[in-house]
């Protein structure tokens, strides 16, 4: 992919304001997830949840290249995608706490947040389960004749699911505007992908003739520049793309996975050197696009907003009993 293509956005034509907005989104996800973890460890949140910490550059890099009316489908590790696509903190926390004010009136919880106003067709508790849905949204776009794009987020664990390949095959046959974003965070639950995925990851999509490439998922500038290219291509009828974004799940599979016996602390420390937030901070400072006090102000503002959202969610009401059999059928 060329970075100097005249017809496409490059890394250098985005101004500081844009990057600070992206930084704010990444900080928002990080702070949201750290707070969700606290809610779990202090027994203030029912169930468990899967944290996106370490992977923020992917959701934000992709979603910053989307319009509000574009679609995404998300995963069990989906808070980052929802927030990056525009979800509000208060309704997110309310959903995590099972409150009626949540995005799904407390019926979905952490793994099922959907918000059609921001084009979020739903997080999914089935690994790879949304590949068909995102592709169907692409079919819908084609049939309705709009120039929307559909993005399917999934982890490397989903590479083991047949539905993904059925879907990519049809997306390429029919040139559907679907971007398949594989967040290769190295582990499918507790198993390293070297034990789960044979052969080449990008080769799987390339075999269908789908535009496929592997990129550094820790560097938002790379993710965003690539996203703009493939999204623009899909919008213009160029068909689907498949991105393997190499990244790392900084925390366990879920909040209760604290021992992580399946991987070493050394490996974690190596990846921690490439924290996506730090990488963006360093670049913003070195390129003199922002002063440290500006970044600090963003972090503080996000912290305040997250605290307010948690307070809202904790004070919100649980759904009434009459809600339990509401919405089984439309």
């Amino acid at each position: 992919m060329s970075e100097t293509n005249d017809t496409n956005p490059s890394l250098t034509d985005l101004d500081a304001e844009h990057w600070l907005q992206a930084y704010e989104q990444m900080v928002k996800i990080r702070t949201f997830e750290e707070t969700a973890n606290e809610l779990y460890t202090s027994a203030r949140m029912p169930g468990i949840t899967h944290l996106y910490i370490g992977e923020e550059a992917i959701a934000v890099g992709i979603c910053e290249a989307l319009r509000q009316d574009d679609y995404i489908t998300s995963t069990h590790r989906g808070h980052g995608h929802c927030l990056a696509k525009g979800a509000a903190l208060d309704k997110m926390f309310a959903e995590l706490l099972g409150k009626e004010a949540g995005y799904c009136r407390g019926k979905g919880g952490s793994m099922h947040i959907a918000d059609q106003e921001t084009g979020n067709l739903g997080a999914n508790g089935i690994v790879g389960g949304s590949a068909g849905i995102a592709t169907g949204a692409g079919m819908s776009i084609k049939l309705r004749g709009t120039d929307q794009v559909s993005v399917c987020f999934f982890g490397d664990g989903a590479l083991g699911q047949g539905l993904l390949y059925e879907s990519m095959n049809m997306a390429q046959l029919w040139k559907l505007p679907v971007i398949y974003v594989c967040e290769n965070n190295q582990y499918g639950e507790y198993t390293h992908n070297s034990k789960a995925a044979a052969g080449s990851m990008v080769g799987r999509a390339a075999g269908f003739g789908v535009h496929a490439q592997a990129i550094d998922g820790q560097d938002i500038r790379t993710v965003h520049a690539t996203a703009r290219l493939v999204i623009d291509r899909a919008r213009k009828g160029g068909g689907p793309a498949f991105l393997v974004c190499n990244t790392y799940r900084f925390r366990g599979h879920h909040v209760g996975d604290i021992d992580r016996p399946y991987r070493t602390r050394e490996e974690e420390a190596e990846w921690a050197k490439r924290d996506p937030l730090t990488l963006l901070e360093d670049w913003l400072l070195k390129s003199k696009q922002a002063e440290e006090n500006v970044l600090e102000r963003i972090r503080q503002e996000v912290k305040t907003a997250v605290d307010d959202a948690v307070a809202f969610a904790e004070e919100a009401s649980f759904p009434s009993e009459s809600e339990v059999d509401n919405h089984v059928y439309a």
């Binding site: 067709l121 849905i133 169907g136 819908s140 095959n169």
Partner: peptide, 20 residues
Amino acid sequence: SPISEAGIAGIGVGAAITGM
């Protein structure tokens, strides 16, 4: 469609959610 029952059912779900 190709012989992909799960895939076309998934396409149905996604298309239905988005207005078809």
